[in-house]
Amino acid sequence: MGDTVHPPFPLLVPDDTPDLDDVRAALSGADAVVGLGTDVAATLAWAVGVSRPRTPAATWELLASVAARDVAAARVLEPHLDALGILDEAAAAGFEVPVERGCSWGVFAAEAPGTRLRARREGGAWRLHGTKPWCSLAADLTHALVTAWVDDEQRQLFALDLRDPAVTARTGPWHARGLERVISAPIDVDGAVAVPVGDPGWYLRRPGFAHGGAGVAACWWGGAVPLRSALAEAARADRADQLSRVHLGRADVALWAARAVLVETATVFAAGPSASEGLRAARARTVVADAVETTLAEAAHALGPLPLVADEAHARRVADLRVYVRQHHAERDLATIGGDVATGAAGW
C-alpha cells in the first residue's frame, strides 16, 4: 500500500489536538487494507467506517496522513467526509436528510459548457434530468450530493441515490495515468428522485464550503510529504552533492510554508464563521498547490528518471499528485483572489 515508510504522525497538528485518537484508529484501519487506493471497493469499505473528526485540524490531519500513505485513498476518502460534513451542516440549519447506514458518498458540484443537470417538481417529488460532469467514482458509490439547476439562475443541492435505475454512470472518457481507478466521468440522469438539501444557493453560502476546499489542499500537502523524504534520503547518500541539498531545501521550505498556512487556516476556521473564509481557503489552496508543484519539480530534478520507472510507489504517487493537484484552478483562482483584494473586500 503506497510507501513502506510513512512520515511521522501527527503531520500537521500538535499531539494533544482533539480527535487524534479517532485519526489514529482510522489510520490503523487504512494500514490494514490491502491495495488501498487502487482497490476502490476495499478503500470505500474502509472509508465508510471512518469517524469524521469534529475539528478542521483533526480532519485535515487525517486526510494528509492518508495521502502520505496513498494519494488515491485520500482522493476517495475526502469527498465522503466532505459529504458527511455537509449533511451535518444541513441538519443544523433545519434541512435534515434521512441517511442510510453504511452509505458511501460523493460530492458532484462541477459544471461544464453545454451540459446541465436540472431539477423540477413532478408529482410531489423532486426529479433530476440531464447530465452532470466530473462525477468521481459514480459507478462505485451508493449516494452523492449533487448540485442541479432549479431555474436559469440558481442551483440547489440534492441527495441522490446512485443505485436508482434512472442514473447511469459513464465509464469515460478516462485515460488518466494518475488516479486511474478514481474515474471522474459524467452521469446521465433521467427522472431520478432526489431529496433537496438546503435552499437554492445554500450549498455555496454555507460556512463549511471553504472548509472542504482547504481539506482538498491538505490531501495535496500530505501526498507530497513522502517526496520530501525521498529528497532527504538522496541528500544523505555518499555521493550527494550541494545540488541535492538545494533541491531538498527548496522542497522543504515550500512544504513548511504550506504547512504553516494550513495550521493557521484550521485554527481560524475552528474559531467560527467569518466573512473572509472563502478568500482564506483560496489563498491556502494556492500556497499548497504551489508547494506541491515545487516539490514535484525538485524531486524530478534531483532523483532523475530511475524512481519514475523502477519504483512503483514513487511513480504512482507522482502520477496521482499531478492529476489531483489540477483540481486547483491555477491562474483563475489567483485572478479571483486579486479581484477580492483590488476591490477592498479582503484584508490580511
Rank of each mutant, 00 (worst) to 15 (best):
I86V: 14
P7H: 04
S65G: 06
V309E: 13
L36Q: 06
E61I: 02
V323A: 05
V288Y: 00
A73M: 07
V71C: 01
Q242G: 14
A302H: 04
H175E: 12
V246E: 06
V189E: 01
C103D: 12
L27F: 08
V13F: 03
I337R: 08
A176H: 14
G102H: 03
P186V: 01
R163L: 09
A297S: 14
A297V: 14
A230M: 11
G222D: 08
R332F: 07
A57K: 04
T265D: 11
V13H: 00
P8N: 09
D252N: 07
L303C: 01
G191P: 04
A319E: 02
W220C: 01
G191E: 08
D311R: 11
V323W: 13
A282Y: 01
E78K: 10
G249M: 06
L308H: 10
V261S: 12
A92I: 05
V195T: 14
H314N: 08
E111R: 11
P133H: 05
A282T: 15
S136N: 09
R54W: 07
A73Y: 12
G49M: 00
A313H: 10
L306K: 10
R317T: 13
H329C: 09
V76F: 11
L141F: 14
V253W: 14
D238S: 13
H143I: 02
D88C: 13
A169I: 02
L117E: 04
W60D: 11
F95K: 09
D290E: 11
F209M: 14
E78R: 07
P173D: 10
D82A: 12
